[in-house]
Write a protein that binds this DNA or RNA. Structure first.
Lengths: 256, 256
DNA sequence: CGGATTGTTGATAAAGTTCAAACACGGTGG
DNA sequence: CCACCGTGTTTGAACTTTATCAACAATCCG
């Protein structure tokens, strides 16, 4: 997995020159074990990391141990590119699995910012994609009921993984616990468990042994009110994963 | 209210030259009435707007009329600056009150991107500030219970308004309905009503006639687990509004 | 003044949490 | 090889939080 995967299947593409510049910006490639905190909230950082292999999370930590995940990062993601303009982060960055990371010093990004305005704009775009996903997460937590939240998250994840060639769109490896899913969807692990059974019994999807199988894509997309537009994928991918027409239903928390 | 207010009280400051460049980028200043949709989700736009006066919202619209607000915009905010790199938006932009808006064509932003790398980075920073707020909203919806969500939102809002001189930190004008608050905090207007009474009876704050009065800042900040770090304000403002030590309590939805 | 929107309250139902216990499963050490 | 441990999953029952529905009061606006 190389830098090629960055921006893959997105509406924005890197030129050969830009790709070369990005690759030259990589200071080193490192590995980390599972469940390690890479960056603590409030810490000042002078590098950003590109995720080459594995899964990572960004989460807000509560005073009393309870966490809310704000982003799941898949290979190809520029995990904390936003740390370059922000300097210090408002959240933690951690590994979920063992990972391989490319380290990009902020000095290199500064160089791009000053000398490669078009590439800089594409990097800016990448961070805004993150923001677009944040917005969908807000919607998910604020408006969808538990089963729909899980369904929406699974839809989002399979599409993102498929976009970088890590899923065929019908199944994928998801090395998360039900507890993790709870931290993503704002619910307890017990409730996650019950919801997963619901989805399974409805014939929509199964999640067992860290493996997700989607039995009925349209049904799942409908159950989660999922539409991939916010991921800003290329037209082919967007079309491939566009949900069925979403009708009124028992998806929404409060209708009025 | 002029462009001066952009970036005010933030850790990033504009130079005189940069301010002049930004002002020259303004194509026109327009007004709009309350409750008008300015930009629809999916629409392609070639300008961004700077909010000079009034309040605006950004929200995700559901298939069946139900909405989730993803951002509240106050004067000084570059409401949809992210539309410049993104080209099309994943959400609606609407007015809440009558507003005065400065229109900035994307051509002007493109000029800045290519010729003013430092200013461009500061604009990038602004959009990331938005993302930081998104993350806090995710946390709020995912981890806090209803009363804490409202308390947190009120804390956030008073600080943001105070940062641009629109509140003294103890009271402020908030021209929203309880229904709007529900769309922000992911709950029904009925429940908002009950929670507001709770906060009032606890002596923390009152919200009546579109006016919020904070009676006990530390109490409210504690009830909402509020810490202003994520707003990236200057040290003085951050210190002024830093909450009391937040202890364990009945703030969080699920502790484990 | 009159109609529409917003706020308030109560009763009831649904959704989600908590607590507790049992089960599955992969490692690890004897 | 088996006993044991820790982590993760599953289930049940009681409880809390929040939504829903319905009615009415207050307020705003033309």
């Amino acid at each position: 997995m190389h830098v090629q995967r960055v921006l893959q299947a997105r509406r924005v593409h890197l030129t050969e020159v830009e790709r070369a510049i990005l690759e030259r910006s990589i200071d080193s490639v490192i590995t980390r074990g599972p469940r390690e905190t890479l960056i603590d909230q409030g810490e000042t950082v002078n590098f950003s990391v590109l995720l080459l292999e594995g899964l990572m999370s960004r989460h807000v930590d509560d005073f009393d141990g309870c966490r809310q995940m704000v982003a799941l990062q898949v290979p190809g993601d520029f995990v904390d590119l936003h740390a370059y303009p922000l300097k210090t982060l408002d959240h933690d960055v951690a590994t979920l699995t063992a990972v391989r990371l490319a380290i990009v010093p902020h000095a290199a990004l500064s160089d791009i910012q000053h000398n490669q305005p078009e590439l800089a704009r594409k990097l800016w775009f990448l961070t805004l994609l993150d923001a677009a996903m944040h917005r969908k997460w807000i919607y998910r937590l604020g408006r969808l009921k538990a089963a729909a939240r899980i369904a929406h998250f699974l839809c989002e994840t399979v599409v993102r993984l498929a976009a970088v060639g890590l899923s065929d769109g019908r199944q994928f490896h998801l090395p998360l616990t039900q507890f993790d899913l709870g931290e993503i969807c704002g619910m307890t692990s017990v409730h996650v468990n019950r919801v997963l059974r619901e989805l399974r019994e409805a014939g929509l999807c199964t999640f067992r042994n860290q493996q997700v199988e989607i039995h009925d894509w349209h049904g799942l997309a409908k159950a989660g009110a999922f539409e991939p537009g916010y991921l800003y994928l290329d037209d082919a991918t967007t079309h491939r994963f566009s949900g069925a027409h979403i009708e009124e239903g028992c998806v929404c928390k409060s209708s009025a």
